[in-house]
């Protein structure tokens, strides 16, 4: 058995391994605490937190699709005050095991993003991930992530308010991901993460009705993985800041594809719904691959596709 290191570094923050959950698929970690060992994860990324409580969309909010699912939750969450009160103490405990804590921030306006970021300035949080890519809320969110100029400005505003490194989470619902990745970098982002879900629609032909009350929803799961790998590759080659890859990762190989395409770390989302132990399994499978291929440092694999 060869010794190998899965440690990675993003914006000065060290992660014990490159695997974390995708925001919105893991609550705030607490909900899965009895199903897996949270201290084995590289990081926990929280459910999106806004300034005030958000009630989300009407139901039905979810629908299964082949090798995937659509969701239109609409970022229901209790707001930053309750988050700090109720969720952060638990996350602080997990953090003491070396698992990093990344808070996902959402807002309807630049001011809202900034207010949430400011509330977190003195909190035990390693990084902030700014959601400028949710397809399911009407104001803000995705609008900030689809226009390079707006994205640059919101990134700048977040960066100047933030005490922690900032990850901008990008949407795939754009023509040229490279332009958006560059805009985030130009705005001062410490890292980018992608892809958020791909906007989709499903219709019940018997009832002639939309399956989701919101009509459209975000597609996730293995169905989107090749799209995600392509976009991670394009974005990673467009910028010099680290990339966190996500979209349909369900196996170690899927994660390694992201890493070879240029991702420094990988987030696992919908796979956890199929297998609560998915992230732990993926960490193990990455290790097996490294042993098999005599890779001593996972960083050697980042962007190593040719």
């Amino acid at each position: 058995m060869t010794a190998f290191s899965t440690e990675i570094k993003i914006a000065g923050v060290t992660f014990k391994n490159p695997v974390m959950n995708a925001s919105g698929t893991f609550g705030n970690g607490r909900e899965y605490a009895e199903l897996l060992d949270l201290s084995k994860l590289g990081a926990i990324v929280t459910k999106g937190v806004s300034l005030t409580p958000w009630e989300g969309n009407p139901t039905p909010r979810v629908a299964e699709t082949p090798s995937g699912m659509l969701n239109a939750i609409g970022l229901q969450n209790p707001g930053i005050d309750k988050f700090i009160d109720r969720e952060l103490p638990f996350l602080e405990e997990v953090r003491s095991s070396g698992t990093r804590v990344i808070v996902n921030v959402c807002g309807h306006s630049v001011d809202e993003y900034v207010s949430v970021i400011e509330r977190l300035s003195d909190k035990p949080v390693d990084m902030l991930e700014i959601n400028v890519s949710c397809p399911n809320v009407k104001e803000g969110a995705i609008a900030f992530g689809q226009d390079p100029d707006m994205l640059r400005d919101v990134t700048k505003a977040c960066k100047s308010a933030a005490k922690q490194p900032v990850i901008m989470k990008l949407t795939p619902n754009v023509t040229d991901i490279k332009a958006l990745a560059k805009a985030a970098e130009d705005g001062g982002a410490d890292a980018i993460s992608l892809i958020n879900t791909i906007t989709g629609m499903k219709i019940d032909v018997e009832k002639k009705r939309f399956l989701l009350a919101n009509r459209t929803g975000g597609l996730s799961g293995p169905a989107i993985h090749p799209v995600a790998v392509r976009m991670v590759y394009e974005a990673a080659h467009a910028v010099d800041i680290p990339v966190i890859g996500m979209g349909g990762v369900i196996s170690g190989n899927d994660a390694l594809e992201m890493i070879l395409a240029g991702a420094s770390a990988v987030a696992v989302g919908t796979a956890t719904f199929h297998d609560p132990d998915a992230m732990i399994r993926i960490i193990g499978e990455i290790g097996e691959y490294m042993e098999k291929h005599a890779v001593t440092d996972i960083n050697e694999l980042v962007g190593a596709v040719s």
Partner: peptide
């Protein structure tokens, strides 16, 4: 009942 995804309270898919 409602359409569910995670079953454990993280996804907020099945609300009333």
């Amino acid at each position: 009942e409602e359409r569910m995804a995670c079953g454990v309270g993280v996804c907020l898919g099945c609300v009333a």
